[in-house]
C-alpha cells in the first residue's frame, strides 16, 4: 500500500496547477523511490515529467508499484479543499479503486478526508535519453515568465539563440518584432537573480510561446528555472523541487518545412 505524507499541501497543489492546462488524465506511478508522472499533452508537442522523491515525504511508504490513474480536474477540485499549510497524506491500497487524501491542519484539530475514483489510463511512456545539452541557462523563473508573457503579446513563436554573447529571446509578429537578451550575471546581494549560461556550442531553436507560457505556471514552485537546449532536440525547462525532486517540461522545437 501507499502512504505518503507531505508537510504542506501547497507543493502538490502548485504542481497540479502547473500541469493541468497541458494534461487531463495521467498516472501517478508510485514505488519505493517516490511518486513519478510522465504525460504528453493532447497534441503530443510537449511532455511533462515530474518526480517527487520519497525524501520529500515524511513518512513515505510504498511496498510495490502502484499506478494511480487520476483525472487532474478531479484532483484539482479536491486539492482546493486543502489549505496551503495543511499536512497532506495520500493513501492507496495495492490494487486501488480510489486514492484517499487526508488534510490536517497543524494548528487546529480539523481533519478532512476525500476519496477520488481512479481511472485505467493506458499511457504511452517515452524513454527520455540522457542528453548532453549544447547550452544550459539558469535564470530567475519570474524573469523567464515575464519574457514569455511579453513576447506572447507579439507573436506565437519565439526564437531562442544562445551564443557566447548571451541568450537572445526574439519574436516577429504582425505588429512588429521584439527581443530580450540576457548575459551571464552574478548578483552579489541575491543569488536568486543570477543568470548563468553554460555553453558548449551555439544553439538556435524556435518554440511555441503558448506552451512556454503554460510551463511558466510552475514559476511559483521555484525561484529558478533551467533551460537546456541542443539543436534539433526538445527544449528542457526544469523547476527544482525540494529533496532533489523536479518538475520538467519538454517541448518539441518548431522546424522549417
Amino acid at each position: 500500500m501507499l502512504e505518503a505524507r507531505l508537510e504542506q499541501a501547497n507543493l502538490l497543489k502548485k504542481v497540479v496547477d502547473s500541469i493541468t492546462n497541458l494534461v487531463q488524465d495521467c498516472n501517478f506511478d508510485c514505488n519505493d523511490s517516490g511518486i513519478a508522472l510522465q504525460a504528453m499533452d493532447n497534441s503530443h508537442v510537449a511532455l511533462v515529467a515530474m518526480m517527487l522523491r520519497s525524501d520529500a515525504f515524511s513518512p513515505f511508504r510504498c511496498d510495490r508499484n502502484i499506478a494511480l490513474g487520476i483525472n487532474l480536474t478531479s484532483l484539482t477540485k479536491v486539492l482546493r479543499c486543502a489549505q496551503n499549510e495543511d499536512i497532506l497524506t495520500l493513501k492507496a491500497e495495492d490494487a486501488p479503486d480510489v486514492v484517499n487524501l487526508v488534510f490536517e491542519s497543524a494548528e487546529s484539530d480539523r481533519l478532512s478526508e476525500y476519496d477520488i475514483k481512479l481511472m485505467d489510463i493506458d499511457q504511452e511512456h517515452l524513454g527520455i535519453p540522457d542528453t548532453e545539452y549544447a547550452a544550459s541557462i539558469t535564470m530567475p523563473s519570474a524573469e523567464f515568465q515575464r519574457i514569455t508573457r511579453d513576447l506572447l503579446a507579439l507573436s506565437e513563436s519565439v526564437s531562442i539563440e544562445c551564443t557566447k554573447e548571451g541568450v537572445k529571446f526574439s519574436c516577429q509578429g504582425d505588429i512588429g518584432s521584439g527581443s530580450v537578451t540576457l548575459r551571464s550575471h552574478t548578483n552579489v546581494d541575491n543569488e536568486d537573480r543570477n543568470v548563468s549560461i553554460d555553453l558548449s556550442e551555439p544553439v538556435s531553436l524556435m518554440f511555441s510561446l503558448k506552451y512556454l507560457s503554460n510551463f511558466c505556471k510552475a514559476s511559483g514552485l521555484s525561484s529558478r528555472v533551467k533551460l537546456s537546449l541542443s539543436n534539433e532536440v526538445p527544449l528542457l525547462v526544469e523547476y527544482a523541487l525540494p529533496s532533489n525532486s523536479f518538475l520538467r517540461f519538454y517541448l518539441a522545437p518548431k522546424i522549417g518545412d
Binding site: 504528453m40 497534441s43 503530443h44 508537442v45 510537449a46 511532455l47 504511452e124 511512456h125 517515452l126 524513454g127 527520455i128 535519453p129 513563436s157 524556435m206 511555441s208 532536440v233 526538445p234 519538454y250 517541448l251 518539441a252 522545437p253 518548431k254 522546424i255 522549417g256 518545412d257
Partner: peptide, 14 residues
C-alpha cells in the same frame, strides 16, 4: 512554413 514537431519523434518508446 513552420510546423510544430511532435515530441515522440525525438524520444524512444520506453
Amino acid at each position: 512554413k513552420i510546423f510544430q514537431t511532435q515530441i515522440f519523434k525525438f524520444f524512444l518508446n520506453g
